[in-house]
Computed example of a mutant assay.
Amino acid sequence: MVDATPDILSAAEEKERQKRLKYYSASQWTLIWWRFRRHKAAIVAGVFLALMAVLGLFAEFVAPYGQTTRDTSYIDGAPQMPMFCDRNGCSFQPFIHGVSTKRDPITLRAISVPDPDKRVYVRFFAKGEATDLLGFIPIDRHLFGLDDEKAKLHLWGTDDLGRDVFSRTMYATRTSLSIGVLGVLISFVLALLIGGIAGYAGGMTDNVIQRVTEVVRVVPIIPLYMGLAAAMPKEWSTTQVYFAMTLILGLFGWPTLARRIRSQLLSIRNEDFVVAARLAGARPGRIIGQHMLPSFTSFIIVDLVISFPYMILSETALSFVGLGLRPPTVSWGVLLQQAQSVRVIEQTPWLFIPAIFVVGAVLAFTVIGDGLRDAADPYSEAS
């Protein structure tokens, strides 16, 4: 009988050798991706953010109604959840009950109540309001709708004006996430320029830039935003207010990242590869961009990801207190501004649904930041 153990062991050793060879010959970004894939929570958070981004990007298609469309027959209406069975039997197609209006015997206020004897079936890719997808693609089909054009489906209920909470939340998701992305990009470019110059030049240039950075950091944010909000002309369109808000968040969000870039550059500016590039006649911009920044790019990306929650929370908080975006523009902060009364907590708690998106986005960015930090660290256990 032939002993196959040596062959099995040699095959296993060869497989391990090939695996190690592939690992050590991979690029830095490939290694980071391999480590990041092991962080299951970060992968789940990334999928969640990707889904949220898709919902916001294609809000005109996902949302059955416009962000200002009103349903006067269903004001402060409760969420309507599609069902398959009721007291009249079951159906293979989801449906909701029709709505009838009755008068409250005590307050004499007109209230909407479901009619269990009337079924309205839900259809996917249903024809509805005509709108422009992404602002320039005309469409009249939506992800879901009702087969009765006179009836309306409100998955997450309506507000005090009869506007659909689900549709407004989809539009708000795009606004809040885009402000976070654009604000971080603006602050990143400023931090890269200012921190790069300070870290590479050093000396008097570094001292001057650091004093300016300290001045920007100690500016009280709330009074500053109050003054800027008051200075915004009332005749400005929602688009102008949106870009102004994004620019303000970006202009005052760069000091922390700039200091981190500056400290990293100061620590490596006298390394051999930097000195060699300088002696070879390379210009400062090329030395910083081609040699110094790539040596800690992974850490910059981690800082950028962690900066997103702060941008989103800043916009949400400012819009919540009335210093940010203004209606009819919708964002998470604008939607939550309507849910700050005791009456809402008692009678219309579904208006707090946008808060779930805020918490989910912030937690997802934080988890992804932790995953990238572990993946970018060559001494972590994930490596």
Rank of each mutant, 00 (worst) to 15 (best):
S176D: 03
D164W: 04
G162Q: 04
L155V: 05
S187F: 04
E149D: 13
G180K: 04
L192S: 14
D164I: 01
Y171L: 09
D164E: 07
D148A: 13
S167F: 02
D164A: 03
L190Y: 01
I179L: 15
R163A: 08
V189F: 12
S167R: 03
W156Y: 07
R163Q: 14
L185V: 13
F166R: 06
A151E: 15
D160F: 13
S167I: 00
T173N: 10
L161A: 13
S167D: 11
E149G: 10
F188C: 09
L155C: 05
D159P: 14
I179T: 10
R168A: 04
F188Y: 14
Y171V: 11
D148C: 08
D159V: 11
Y171G: 10
R163F: 01
F188W: 13
L185G: 13
D147Q: 14
K150C: 00
I179F: 06
A191G: 14
L155Y: 08
I186E: 13
D159L: 11
I186H: 12
L177D: 11
K152C: 00
V181F: 15
S187I: 02
A172V: 00
T169E: 02
T158G: 10
D148G: 08
S167V: 01
V181T: 09
I186N: 12
L155Q: 06
Y171M: 10
M170V: 06
L190V: 12
S178L: 15
Y171I: 07
L177G: 11
G180V: 01
D148Q: 12
L192W: 13
T173A: 15
K152D: 00
V165E: 03
R168I: 01
T169S: 15
Y171W: 12
A191I: 00
G157D: 07
S176Y: 02
L155M: 09
G180H: 04
R174Y: 09
H154E: 08
L177S: 11
V184A: 15
S167C: 05
G162M: 02
R174I: 02
D147C: 04
